[in-house]
Simulated assay, not measured.
Amino acid sequence: MRLPLLSLMLVVFGLTTGEFAIAGILPEVAGDLAVPVSSAGLLVTAYALGMIVGGPVLTVLTARIPRRRLVVGLVGFAVLANLGSALAPSYPVLLATRFAAGLIVATFFAVAIATAVRLAPEGKAASAIAQVALGMNLGIVLGTPIGSLVGQHLGWRVTFAVVAGCAALGLLMVLRFVTELPSAATGSTFGELRVLADRELLLAIALTALGSLGVVGVFTYIAPLLTEITGFGATTVPALLLVYGAGAVAGNHLGGWLADRALLPALIGLLTALTATLALFWAAAEIPPATAVLVFVLGALAFAVIPGMQARVIGAAASAPTLAIAINAAGYQVAAAVAGRLGGWTLTDGPGLRSLPLIAAALTATGVALAAYLLRRDRQPVAA
């Protein structure tokens, strides 16, 4: 089981690095393509929109394709899209290639997790999922700062080329070690799609989007926040992204442990703490030591809320779990898309970069309100 899971984990690592590394090289991209930083931030939005569109649609349309064949196709497309980003001659072309790169990500994550479960021996499903998901954590902890460092010293195009190379290596390992598995579909395509009309699922997606919106907006513009507001040098940004990633790993484990014990109460507490931390980030943005500590806390809380949100989504769509995982990723990317656009407005037409963490805190508070509403409704007695 180890080598097939390592193959999938490596692809997850590459795709995660491709998604998050842009935050550390946003100023370099903007400068090279002669566009404002606010416009460069739309590259995050384009990638997120690709995941939003591609996740549910591709997951349903490819449900009857054997898993190994599907994984090979998805990863091959990701390699080409990231190479396209590395070679993009202009901002519009880069925008299009980032959208294309995002199209397959949610579906791949969903299929990778489902494949890990099917490859695992009995009683080892959770361990298999953890091994594949480790690629995401490593992508944040190692891939993002390394990608940012590469982009700052060798050019942002090299960052995307490295992402493509990492995905290509994972593809070769998939071809060698992942055996053929049957398709995941158990019913009609219409039956799979009916889950999208479920009110509980829509509320769960809304919770994912609202709870993530603020912190994703801050992370999208973390490089200019750290350099222009706090006063860190550009060379310090990769190290601070490593701090953020370390917090993300710790928070992911903490969030899962808390959600297993009391899902919605844990989410309410974590989202409240995230709201307060974003407000503190705004208040202390010009104090470098405090900001460095808060970067770790932000990473921890941003990822501590994810296990509970994912569990809520999967529980609401038990009849189509693979689609549910893709939808959960799409809900997160709704937040990323809106956050990129909102951050751009804040920088250009709004109150400015300095106020972004405070706006993020207010947005996260709406996630607290929704989680509290869901908890109160869940605790209401069912009418006879």
Score class of each variant (00 low, 15 high):
281 F>K: 01
292 A>R: 04
326 A>Y: 04
310 Q>K: 07
210 L>E: 06
101 A>H: 08
145 P>H: 10
141 V>D: 05
61 L>Y: 12
335 A>S: 14
185 A>W: 13
303 F>V: 05
73 G>I: 00
217 G>Q: 09
41 G>S: 09
152 Q>N: 01
311 A>L: 08
225 L>S: 06
299 G>L: 07
327 I>V: 15
360 A>Q: 11
174 V>N: 05
149 L>H: 01
14 G>A: 12
198 D>I: 04
330 A>W: 03
304 A>W: 05
271 L>P: 04
106 A>I: 03
320 A>E: 10
213 L>T: 13
127 S>G: 12
216 V>G: 04
231 G>S: 11
13 F>A: 12
240 L>P: 02
323 L>F: 11
226 L>M: 12
91 Y>K: 00
46 A>H: 07
373 Y>I: 09
97 T>R: 07
27 P>S: 10
70 L>G: 13
353 L>Y: 02
305 V>S: 02
192 E>A: 09
379 R>M: 11
36 P>T: 08
170 G>F: 07
132 V>K: 09
308 G>K: 03
297 V>P: 01
379 R>P: 03
292 A>K: 08
300 A>M: 10
15 L>Q: 06
1 M>Y: 14
260 D>H: 13
368 V>L: 11
342 L>A: 15
78 A>W: 00
143 G>E: 09
50 G>R: 07
45 T>A: 15
64 R>W: 06
138 L>G: 04
12 V>R: 02
85 S>K: 10
26 L>R: 08
290 A>Q: 09
201 L>I: 02
166 C>R: 07
88 A>Q: 09
198 D>G: 13
83 L>E: 12
185 A>E: 15
34 A>Y: 03
119 L>I: 14
177 F>V: 04
331 G>N: 02
26 L>A: 12
340 G>T: 08
112 A>P: 01
263 L>I: 13
237 V>R: 00
229 I>G: 01
247 G>A: 13
244 Y>I: 04
188 S>C: 10
164 A>H: 01
201 L>P: 01
327 I>P: 05
19 E>T: 06
338 V>M: 05
302 A>G: 01
226 L>I: 01
216 V>Q: 14
169 L>N: 11
108 F>R: 14
307 P>Q: 07
296 F>W: 13
278 L>I: 00
136 M>C: 03
156 W>N: 03
106 A>D: 04
250 A>Y: 05
365 A>G: 07
221 Y>W: 10
175 L>W: 00
25 I>D: 03
42 L>M: 15
186 T>M: 13
230 T>Q: 06
57 V>C: 04
267 L>R: 06
345 W>S: 05
87 L>Q: 11
19 E>I: 08
221 Y>G: 12
152 Q>G: 02
257 W>R: 14
276 A>L: 15
295 V>A: 07
232 F>T: 02
381 P>Y: 06
295 V>L: 06
167 A>V: 12
235 T>D: 12
253 H>K: 13
313 V>W: 00
156 W>I: 05
258 L>R: 13
249 V>W: 11
140 I>S: 02
327 I>H: 08
366 T>V: 10
222 I>K: 04
355 S>W: 11
225 L>M: 12
123 G>K: 02
248 A>N: 09
165 G>L: 03
73 G>Y: 02
173 M>W: 15
280 L>V: 03
331 G>T: 03
200 E>A: 15
33 L>Q: 04
73 G>A: 00
159 T>R: 05
234 A>S: 10
33 L>A: 04
